[in-house]
Design a protein around this nucleic acid. Structure first.
Length: 284
DNA sequence: AAACCAACCAACCGCATTTCT
DNA sequence: CAGAAATGCGGTTGGTTGGTT
């Protein structure tokens, strides 16, 4: 708090990363692991600030990153997650394996929010707009499959408008709830809050989204590393479920949630109500 | 061919939160 | 417990690309 940003240091390289820098960073992390971003650049022989290194690694160099081609299923999922979580890109990204928060944020701002606007839906509230925006003449023809930049980019869906999206900064969960930022199903709090944000975080913390495969959103319960944490959390997050001793209760709730989540957008209103009801039910 | 414009996205920046001392 | 340091997140910017005029 109040200290100078690390990137203000003079003499540090900024701007696009060179292949050599990428290699240095990758090799260093392969050898020593992630973390200690502050000291990493020096040790790795990079003239970059730690922040920059972290960003580069997280958004580009990590081996598990899936680049390009955001599938229709993924994009549907992003919309639904956004309606639940708001602009919590890292949380949304956490549910889309191989996708980064930056990528999803960019994709949202350049594609999805515009699409929702065109469909007459407010991208912030996910409510139907009373007055759908008039269909604007597209001065330019659609760009199709023309991008061949430096990477294998997503096939772009061209949309007619470019409203700059200035979304309100999401409210962070205050310390009394003490929820983890992400990827931590292990430390969820039992505290109950009535705010929408916290309801959403509760949902986020108990749903073991673990696998979304290309060509279709496939969710599996108890798959991979999250499964044990998830089970471990049941009793803490939903005491009434665990107390009942019904091993299937949570799965049922999960299933119910998925049904709501995966409903088609034709039923947006009902879908939202179902999600709200579901979320509230968790807090009883 | 050149200027203009829109689309895209990597990277930067500021700040909140968490961890460390 | 307080303050400092480290980390992570979300908003924004600016460079690049490629289509249109």
């Amino acid at each position: 708090m109040g200290r100078a940003p690390c990137c203000s240091k003079v003499g540090l390289h900024r701007g696009p990363w060179t292949p050599r820098e990428d290699t240095l960073l990758t090799k260093y992390i392969e050898a020593h692991g992630e973390g200690h971003w502050r000291s990493l650049p020096k040790k790795a022989g990079l003239l970059r600030c730690g922040k920059s290194c972290r960003l580069r690694w997280m958004n580009y160099l990590r081996p598990d990153i899936k680049r390009g081609n955001i599938t229709p299923d993924e994009d549907d999922l992003i919309i639904r997650l956004h309606s639940l979580l708001g602009n919590r890109w890292s949380l949304i990204a956490g549910r889309l394996p191989g996708r980064t928060d930056n990528e999803i944020k960019n994709y949202w701002n350049t594609h999805l929010s515009k699409r929702l606007m065109n469909e007459g839906t407010d991208p912030n509230t996910h409510q139907k707009l009373s007055q759908p925006p008039p269909p604007k003449e597209n001065k330019r023809k659609k760009k199709q499959n023309h991008k061949s930049k430096h990477k294998n980019k997503t096939e772009k869906r061209s949309l007619p408008e470019k409203p700059k999206v200035h979304l309100p900064k999401p409210t962070r969960i205050t310390s009394f709830v003490n929820l983890p930022r992400q990827d931590s199903f292990t430390t969820a709090s039992t505290n109950v809050s009535s705010s929408q944000d916290q309801v959403q975080d509760h949902i986020n913390n108990i749903i073991p989204w673990s696998d979304i495969k290309e060509g279709g959103a496939v969710f599996s319960v108890g798959d991979g590393s999250t499964s044990s944490d998830f089970e471990c959390d049941q009793s803490r997050i939903i005491p009434n479920v665990a107390a009942g001793g019904d091993d299937h209760s949570l799965e049922n709730i999960y299933e119910e949630y998925l049904q709501a989540l995966l409903k088609t957008t034709d039923q947006d209103q009902n879908y939202q109500v179902e999600l709200d009801t579901f979320a509230e039910s968790l807090l009883i």
